[in-house]
Amino acid sequence: MSAADLLPILRGLPWTLGLTLGAFLIGALLGMPLLAARQSRSVPLRGLSMTIIQIVRGIPPILWLFIVFFGLGTGYLPISPFGAAVASLGLISAANMAEIYRGALASIHPGQWEASSALNLGRWSTLVDIVAPQTFRVALPSAASYLIGLMKETAVASTIGVTELTFYGNQQSQLTFRGLEVFAVVGLIYVLISLPVAWLSRIADSYLQAKVAR
């Protein structure tokens, strides 16, 4: 496969990265209030958050894209294909990140809270200075794995016209009639851009593990 065939495909790389980071940031932020509701002492609030998480995670990503872009975007809320993809994948990301946070928080021994109370530390201080750093370290590997998975899920955005890697790969395969070569290259690009995420997550995990241990 020549460079002339590769360059058109690479035009989709910024869109893939932008879509991945946008959706992940939305999920990382919205996952926190979802977690707070999930851990609430209010039974209705806890039930509502659990229902939202189960519904969001139970519907395929491509269907969420169609709901937002063709459903809400047709007459109700005009939205671009990229905006619809970010919103859809961001919603899915929020539900998944809430569960990642919940699992990480559950791994923190209750004795941490009791010891902090014995030292007369306030609840907020305990959460920010003691529990949160440990929770973040535990959640980091799962969050990094989800980020890599989310990067691959962005391929479905091509179905609504987002010009990301898979979109241009499909376009190039139709022009060259070499689908196997083209999509093998597209797959290799996804692998290559996921490697730095895995590498950085390992470095961050080692750093946080050493910091928490001190």
Rank of each mutant, 00 (worst) to 15 (best):
W199P: 00
R178M: 11
Y190N: 04
F24D: 05
A85N: 03
A118W: 06
F183Y: 15
G27W: 10
G18C: 06
L208R: 01
V212N: 14
L21Q: 11
A4Y: 10
G27Y: 10
G111L: 13
L77Q: 06
M97F: 15
P60F: 06
F82V: 12
I53W: 05
S49D: 09
I79V: 12
L89Q: 00
L150I: 08
L150S: 02
Q112P: 06
R38V: 05
A157N: 09
A184M: 12
L6Y: 06
I59Q: 01
L13S: 05
T16Y: 08
M151H: 07
P60Y: 10
L17C: 14
E99I: 04
M151R: 05
A204Q: 07
G22V: 10
P78N: 10
F66G: 02
V43G: 01
F82D: 00
M97C: 11
R178H: 14
L89S: 00
Y190C: 01
L63M: 13
V86G: 04
L180E: 00
A210I: 00
T51M: 14
L150R: 02
V138T: 14
T126F: 07
T74N: 15
I67P: 03
A94Q: 06
A87N: 01
L165A: 04
G103N: 13
I79Q: 03
W113V: 13
R178Q: 14
S158R: 07
L127I: 06
T163I: 11
L105F: 15
S93R: 00
R202L: 12
A4I: 12
L6G: 05
G22A: 15
L63Y: 03
R214D: 11
R123N: 09
Q174C: 09
R57N: 06
G18T: 10
P61M: 07
P133T: 05
A144W: 08
L192S: 04
Q134M: 07
A118T: 13
A157I: 04
V182L: 07
A198K: 10
N96I: 12
V162A: 03
G90H: 01
G27V: 09
G179D: 08
F136V: 15
M151E: 02
G169E: 01
S80R: 10
T163V: 12
Q171R: 14
G103V: 11
A210M: 11
K152M: 10
Q112H: 15
L175R: 14
P60M: 07
L65R: 03
A23N: 02
S93Q: 04
K211T: 12
S42E: 04
L200Q: 06
I189A: 02
L180V: 13
Q134V: 02
P14S: 02
A94V: 01
R11L: 14
T159M: 09
A210G: 05
A98P: 02
A132H: 09
E153C: 08
F177R: 11
S42Y: 05
S201W: 04
I92Y: 10
L195M: 13
S201Q: 10
T20S: 13
P141E: 09
V68G: 01
V185S: 00
A155Q: 00
A198N: 08
I148E: 01
A3V: 15
E181K: 01
M97Y: 14
T159R: 04
I148M: 12
P110V: 03
P14E: 08
D129R: 14
S107V: 02
G122H: 09
L13Q: 09
S80F: 08
W113L: 14
V185N: 00
S194T: 03
W124T: 13
R38A: 13
T74S: 14
